[in-house]
Nucleic acid binder design. Sequence first.
DNA 1: CAAAACGTTAAATTTTTTCTTAACAAAGTT
DNA 2: AACTTTGTTAAGAAAAAATTTAACGTTTTG
Lengths: 186, 186
Amino acid sequence: MNNPHDERAREQIEEAKDQVIQSISETMDLYGVTPAAGKIYATMYFENQMNLDEMREELGMSKPSMSTNVRHLQQIGMVKKKFQRGSRKHTYTAEKNFFHSFMAYFCQMWEREANTNMEAIHQAEKPLLEIIHDEHVSDSFKEEARHHYELLNQSKVYYNWLDQLVHSIRSEEIFEFLPKDTSQKD
Amino acid sequence: MNNPHDERAREQIEEAKDQVIQSISETMDLYGVTPAAGKIYATMYFENQMNLDEMREELGMSKPSMSTNVRHLQQIGMVKKKFQRGSRKHTYTAEKNFFHSFMAYFCQMWEREANTNMEAIHQAEKPLLEIIHDEHVSDSFKEEARHHYELLNQSKVYYNWLDQLVHSIRSEEIFEFLPKDTSQKD
DNA sequence: CAAAACGTTAAATTTTTTCTTAACAAAGTT
DNA sequence: AACTTTGTTAAGAAAAAATTTAACGTTTTG
C-alpha cells in the first residue's frame, strides 16, 4: 500500500475529485445553497454514504454546521437520509442522479412561484375590478385600474405555463420531447 | 380629483399593486436577487419606465443602491436601459414578459452550470484515465479511479440534456411541446 | 468657464447570514 | 441509574453582503 505509484495515484484521485467538488459547489448557488452546503453535497457525491462526523472530518467544520446544511440539502431533495440499522449514527446519501435533483428543486420552486403569485394576483384583481365597474370613479383611475388588471391577467398565461412545465417534468413527459441522450458527446 | 371615490380608488390601486409587488419580490429569490432588487423590479413592472431618482423616491433607499441593484437586474435580463433623448437621466424599463425573464435567466444559469462542470469533468477525467491504464497502480486504486470515472461520465448525460434544454428554450421549440395557453384558466 | 445634475465608485456602516462553542435532549450502553 | 453517544437547539462570534454617505468623474447648462 505504500507503493509510490499508489501514493501518486491516491493524490491524483483526490485532486481530480477536488476539482469537480469545487466546480459543483460553485454552480450550486443556482440551487440556493451556500458554498459550504455545496461542498458537502459534492463531497457526498463521491461517497456511497456519509455520517455527520465524516462530513465534519472531511470539511473541517463543526457538527452543527453539518447538521443544518444537511437538513437544507434534504429539503431540496439533494440528500436523503439512509435508514441504517445497527449504528446509531444517521447516514446520508447524495442524490447522484442530477436529473432527480433538477426535477425536485425546480419543480418545488416553480410551483411556489406560480402559487404565491397567482394567489396575490387573485387578491389584487378583486379591488381593481370593483374600481373598473364603479360609476363614481373618474375615468383616469378606471383606466389605471384597467391597465393594471390587464397586466396581471396577462401574466397568468406565464404562471399556467409554469404549472404545465412542472407537470411535464414530474410526469417525465418532458423527456419525450427532450430525450436523455446517452450517446457519448464528450 | 379630490373626489372621495377617486381617493378611495387610488388607495385600493396602491394596495393591490403592493400586494403583487410583495409577492413578486418574495418569489424572485429564485432568480438570485435580493428582496430590494426584487422590489425594484416589481415596482417597475407596474410602470412604463423609471429613472433612478424615481426608484429612490418610491423605495425610500439611496441612489447608489438603486444603481447597483438595477445593474444586476440588467445583467440577468430583467431590466433594460431605455434610450431616451432629451433627458439626461437614464430611464429603465422592466421586462414585463415573464417568459423572457424566465428564458434569459435560466438559460444563462444552466449554460454556466453545464459549461463549468463539463470543464471540470474533462480536467478530472484525464488523470483518472491515466491511473486506470497504469500497470503499476494496485487494483484497489484502479477500481476507485474507474468508479469515479464512470460517475463523471454518467453525469455528462445530464449536462448534455441541460444544453439541449437551453437550446430548445432559446429557439422557442419548447413552446411547440408546451404551448403558451392563452385560454383563461383563472 | 463655473455651477449643477447625474451616475458611479470607494470607504465605512449596518444588517444579515453563517458558523462555532456551549448547553441540552433523546436514546443506548454499562 | 449513571454514563456515553449522537443530534439538535440556543446564544454568541465571525464572516459576508447590502446599504449609506461621501467623493469623484463626466456631461450639461447657465
